[in-house]
C-alpha cells in the first residue's frame, strides 16, 4: 500500500462524507424519529394490537419461507455443483430470474394465476381455497422474491470445492445422507447461514409483491412493511417510524452476523 497522497485523502474524505449523507443519515434518522416522542410513546406504538399482529404475521411468513428456501437452495446447489447435465447454465440463469423481476410484477403474476379472475380462480372457488388476500398468497410471493438467496451463496462455494471429498466418502461406503451431513454440510455451513440471514431479511422486508397479494386488511393480512405504509398514510409518522425501527433492527442484526462471518472466514 502506497503512502496516502493528498489526492488520496481527499477521495477517502469524499467517500466518507457521501456515505454519511446518503446511507448513514437515513439509517440513523429512523431511530431518531421513532424515539422522538419518547420511550413511552414508542412502547405504546409497538404494543398496539395492529402492530403486534403485523409483527406476528411477518414472523410466520419468515418461519415458513426461510426453511423452504434453504431446502431449495441446497437442492439447487447440489444438483448444479456436484453433477453435470445439459441445461445447467440455463438453470443457474433461471434461478437468478426473481432478482431481476420487480416484486410488483411477481405480485401481478400471482394475482393473474390465483386471483378470482385468474387462471386457477374458478377451481380455487370450487374447492373453497383462499390463496389471494390471505396467508398462502403472501407466503408464495415471498418465496418467489427470495428464491435465489440461499442458492446463490451456497452454489459458488460448492462448485469451488469440487466433488473429490464426497466421492471419497462414497467410495468408503457412506450413504448419500451421511455424505451430505458429514462432508458437504460442514464445508458450506457459513455460506448457508449467510444465505439464510439474507433470505430472512428479505422475507421480512418484502413490500411490493406482498402489497399486491395481501389486500392490506388491517389486523389480518397486513405485514410489518405494509403496516409502515398504512401508518404513514394515516399521518401517524411516529408510529410508522416505530414499525420501521423494528425492521431496521432486523436489518442491522443481519449485517452484524454477515460481518462476524466474514471476519472469521475471510
Amino acid at each position: 500500500m502506497r503512502p496516502p497522497a493528498r489526492s488520496g485523502r481527499l477521495l477517502v474524505a469524499l467517500a466518507v462524507v457521501l456515505t454519511l449523507l446518503i446511507v448513514v443519515a437515513p439509517l440513523v434518522y429512523i431511530f431518531a424519529r421513532a424515539f422522538s416522542a419518547g420511550w413511552q410513546v414508542y412502547a405504546a406504538n409497538i404494543m398496539d394490537p395492529a402492530m403486534l399482529h403485523a409483527i406476528w404475521l411477518t414472523c410466520i411468513v419468515a418461519v415458513i419461507v426461510v426453511p423452504l428456501n434453504i431446502a431449495f437452495g441446497i437442492a439447487a446447489a447440489w444438483a448444479v455443483a456436484k453433477h453435470r447435465f445439459p441445461g445447467r447454465g440455463l438453470l443457474v440463469t433461471m434461478i437468478e430470474i426473481p432478482f431481476s423481476i420487480s416484486p410488483i410484477i411477481a405480485g401481478i403474476c400471482y394475482l393473474l394465476l390465483y386471483g378470482r379472475q385468474g387462471l386457477l380462480g374458478p377451481w380455487l372457488r370450487e374447492v373453497d381455497l383462499q390463496v389471494m388476500f390471505a396467508l398462502p398468497g403472501i407466503v408464495l410471493v415471498t418465496m418467489f422474491v427470495t428464491a435465489p438467496f440461499v442458492a446463490r451463496e451456497v452454489l459458488p462455494l460448492m462448485q469451488a470445492q469440487g466433488t473429490e471429498q464426497e466421492e471419497a466418502a462414497v467410495t468408503l461406503g457412506a450413504s448419500g445422507w451421511q455424505v451430505f451431513r458429514r462432508v458437504t454440510l460442514p464445508n458450506i455451513r457459513f455460506a448457508l447461514l449467510y444465505g439464510a440471514v439474507l433470505c430472512t431479511a428479505r422475507a421480512v422486508g418484502e413490500f411490493g409483491g406482498v402489497s399486491v397479494v395481501s389486500g392490506n386488511i388491517r389486523g389480518q393480512t397486513n405485514t410489518l412493511p405494509l403496516h409502515v405504509e398504512l401508518l404513514f398514510n394515516d399521518l401517524n409518522a411516529v408510529g410508522a417510524f416505530a414499525a420501521a425501527s423494528t425492521l431496521t433492527l432486523i436489518a442491522v442484526v443481519a449485517l452484524v452476523i454477515k460481518a462476524a462471518l466474514e471476519t472469521r472466514h475471510g
Partner: peptide
C-alpha cells in the same frame, strides 16, 4: 445497508 434494509423503510426515511 440498502440490501438489508426493507425498501419501504428506506422510502419512509
Amino acid at each position: 445497508v440498502p440490501f438489508a434494509l426493507p425498501t419501504a423503510v428506506a422510502g419512509l426515511s
